[in-house]
Design a protein around this nucleic acid. Structure first.
Lengths: 255, 255
DNA sequence: CGGCGGCATTAACATGGGTTAAGGCATTGA
DNA sequence: TCAATGCCTTAACCCATGTTAATGCCGCCG
């Protein structure tokens, strides 16, 4: 039961949790809410907001400018953590809305703190997950700052493919994708019209097709080259080994 | 002596450290190196890299694309922490180079871990600092994704002004700034030529002047409005109070 | 059935910002 | 003193991307 959770599945790439730790995690997840698409999970300026685990469905985090422009910061899929750090420290500086119907657990800041203090390896795993989110944010900034429209688009979709693959929601050549072209535009700092143009060109060039809620890669290698995609930032290549990964805590072979 | 450190000065906005904690921090900082400008503090793909405290001078973190384009992620000033999280978890995914001559402490990952485990409130303070860095990164993404050139420029310089003010390196109307227009361009996703154009326009409109290594705000209010600048993300407004700030640990009034 | 709202698509046109190229002014160092 | 170098500045030109607007499709709902 525990092992099937998308979040546990993802964490297991980094650290194998003990039964006790899995219990701690299960307790956090015991309360679940099901939400419709378009539901607001948190908003800017909210104080005392909950930390979230997204069990199923898609959501996105974003910032709104006073004049209505919005910048999407991240797309969230099953197994993602949302707003954990800011729940400990500050009012939420970003908003989060579901894209599809979704299942979430909401965790009060005090519980987050208690859990982190009680299960240090769980804390390390969560910090690792948060750390990976930051690596994605950095890559996102590079996208928007220094890549052109088609590079950005390819990069984003390849990243999503990678992430969904880990939790079993992608095939080798593609994945189901509920994002509208508006979402893509707001994530990539482009206009909808241009997103549409670029998608068409990529289809015509035989690189990929985005239609009927599915992304299909016709030429994965070509896309990777176009985007300059290197999935290293999503993976654990080159662990420092300081926060010990991969071995249960009582295993004598643990470092 | 401790209290004069820019880093301690900044942390004190969040949590007042006890003598013991200050000692722990001082031990981290005991080794200092002085570097020339243009010195590489870390680079992409480096494993086992050190965590850094920048005591004096300026630096910047950035990512390089294979074709030579670069995206600057952050400008670092006195009192900033660099690469703490990635030192624990992964190979460095970004590079860091000094802009001016600089004084730094380099801390090995194991020491980082030991310090965090031994002084939890220090850990909280450091996590807070890192959390603030992420808030800046988010704001940076909004800049590049959804603000035009003059908004971006104004926003960046107002942010720097705010940050430098906290550590006593800014006057009410401006600050010394060693950044070249190339730096600004690579941070903001613009070309140097355009940065120059926009700076001229702002000077002509009586908003601000950037000359001879100094930024001077002629019309701070106008600039803030132009940039849509709201310094909330740099401050501690709206603390959740979960990781207890502001009171020494043994103070009975501490929450 | 008919209307409406969300989304995709396309065309025509406008422009912000990129590119290229050239010159100026310091500072450095031989 | 004279290069050489690094940085700033400006002009001319061009293109990637934005804007506006219209059309079509589909699913939902009254």
């Amino acid at each position: 039961m525990h092992a099937e959770s998308a979040f546990v599945r993802r964490l297991n790439r980094f650290v194998q949790l003990s039964r006790d730790e899995l219990d701690g995690l299960a307790r956090l997840q015991s309360q679940r809410r099901t939400l419709k698409n378009g539901a607001e999970l948190s908003w800017q300026g909210q104080t005392g907001h909950r930390a979230l685990i997204l069990h199923a469905g898609w959501a996105y985090t974003y910032k709104l400018l006073p004049d209505g422009r919005q910048q999407i910061l991240n797309f969230c899929v099953s197994g993602d953590l949302i707003g954990w750090r800011s729940s400990l420290f500050r009012s939420s500086d970003q908003a989060c809305t579901t894209i599809t119907s979704a299942v979430v657990s909401e965790i009060r800041p005090e519980r987050v703190r208690d859990t982190l203090l009680r299960w240090p390896r769980l804390a390390a795993a969560i910090l690792w997950s948060v750390s990976q989110d930051e690596a994605m944010l950095v890559e996102h900034l590079v996208d928007v700052g220094r890549r052109n429209a088609s590079e950005r688009l390819a990069h984003l979709l390849l990243e999503l493919h990678e992430r969904l693959g880990v939790i079993g929601l992608a095939t080798e050549r593609g994945f189901r994708c509920p994002l509208t072209q508006d979402h893509l535009a707001d994530a990539l700092g482009l206009s909808v019209v241009h997103v549409n143009r670029v998608l068409r060109r990529m289809r015509e060039r035989g690189l990929m097709a985005y239609r009927a809620g599915r992304v299909h890669f016709d030429d994965p290698a070509g896309l990777r080259q176009l985007a300059g995609f290197d999935e290293g930032y999503l993976d654990r290549a080159g662990w420092a080994g300081v926060v010990n990964p991969l071995s249960p805590p009582d295993d004598p072979s643990a470092i």
